Simulated scan of single mutants.
Amino acid sequence: MYPLLRSSAAVLSLCFLAACSSSDSGENLTANVEPSNCEITGHSYGIVGGQVLGSGNELSSSTVLIVTVKENKEYSICTGTLIARDKVLTAAHCSPPDTKAIAIAFTNNVGCMSEAPKRTLRLVVDKAVNEDYPHTNSIYNASNDLAILKFAGNIPEGYKIRSLPSATFSPAPTDTLVMSGYGTTSEKAGDSGTLRFAKSSASNILGNSFFLARSNRTVSVDKTIIVEQPRTGVCSGDSGGALYAKTKDGLTLIGITSMGVDHRALKDSDVRICHGVAIYVDVRENLNWIREQSDKLDRNNL
């Protein structure tokens, strides 16, 4: 198996999650004991050669942190995009079988989530996972690495729903790609949990295939967008995050982060998964599935 990008894990106290679970609606956003100014502002290097995202801008207003609690009291981090008032689009591998183990955090850093759980956290109550995703570690599974999480409660003030793209939208080579996520800034960094973004040129899109040096062959992955990331790109924890095309009309959602592959490395010991290519599920190829499953989730909760 090839080393792939997957969501990172951190060992932290989970008492904040227990506090949130006492309310099944998640609507208590203004508890007096919780600070309202714990969000990050300013800029620094992040995502891989990117910048920290503060609150209230075009990217952070539709990006959420996905937290999955594990049996050993650790938790894994992924990224998601708000596509409805109670739904988040993310990667299938960010959605474990136990829905009760997943929470959505409306915050740009994990520290704020732990300080203000009632304001930031929403519990996942239902989900739709692409039935063709086998939950095994393979490049080819990126074709179907897509899920929708439905959560309880309302979205906080300042957050906005991200529109789906048209099936015919296509970025020009001169357009800019923008990726966002809560992942680490390098393969060895332990700094996941802060929302960051990075930019790249749309000319770095390779289509849905790339040459894998270790196998000396070209790999093609259906229904994906493969982007070369020589200097900036996604890393562990950015799984499920959005890939946007920035045009004169603004940001258009085109992909969901599935994994990273170091396609240049000739042997496993040289692999750096945060450098190489990033594989995104093509949202335009999955519009029917997204709409059908969103409607089904609504019917399930009538």
Rank of each mutant, 00 (worst) to 15 (best):
P3E: 15
R6W: 09
R6A: 12
S7C: 11
A9W: 12
A10L: 09
S13P: 11
L14Y: 04
A18P: 01
S23F: 03
S23N: 07
N28G: 00
N28E: 07
T30Q: 04
T30N: 09
T30R: 04
V33M: 11
N37F: 00
E39R: 10
I47K: 14
G49Q: 03
Q51V: 02
L53N: 12
S55K: 10
G56A: 07
S62M: 14
S62K: 08
T63I: 11
I66T: 09
T68Q: 15
T68V: 15
V69N: 13
K70C: 00
N72F: 07
E74G: 11
Y75H: 08
S76N: 13
G80P: 06
I83M: 01
A84K: 07
K87F: 03
V88K: 01
D98H: 05
I104T: 03
A105M: 04
A105D: 10
T107D: 05
V110C: 09
G111Q: 14
C112A: 04
E115T: 05
E115S: 15
A116R: 14
R119A: 01
R122V: 06
R122L: 07
V124W: 03
D126N: 14
N130W: 10
Y133M: 08
T136P: 01
S138V: 05
A142K: 05
S143Y: 01
L146R: 03
L149E: 05
N154V: 03
P156V: 00
K160W: 01
K160V: 14
S166T: 15
T168W: 09
F169K: 04
S170H: 00
A172W: 04
T176L: 14
S180E: 14
S180Y: 02
G183N: 14
T185I: 03
S186R: 13
A189V: 12
G190Y: 12
A202V: 07
G207R: 00
G207A: 06
L212V: 02
S215M: 10
T218D: 06
V227T: 13
E228P: 04
Q229M: 14
Q229I: 15
G240P: 13
G240N: 09
L243K: 11
L243Q: 10
K248T: 15
K248Q: 10
I254A: 08
G255F: 06
T257M: 06
D270H: 13
D270K: 10
I273S: 10
C274Q: 05
C274W: 07
H275M: 08
G276W: 09
A278K: 07
Y280I: 00
N286P: 02
N288Q: 10
E292Q: 08
E292V: 02
D295A: 11
K296E: 01
D298R: 11
D298W: 05
N301I: 12
N301S: 11
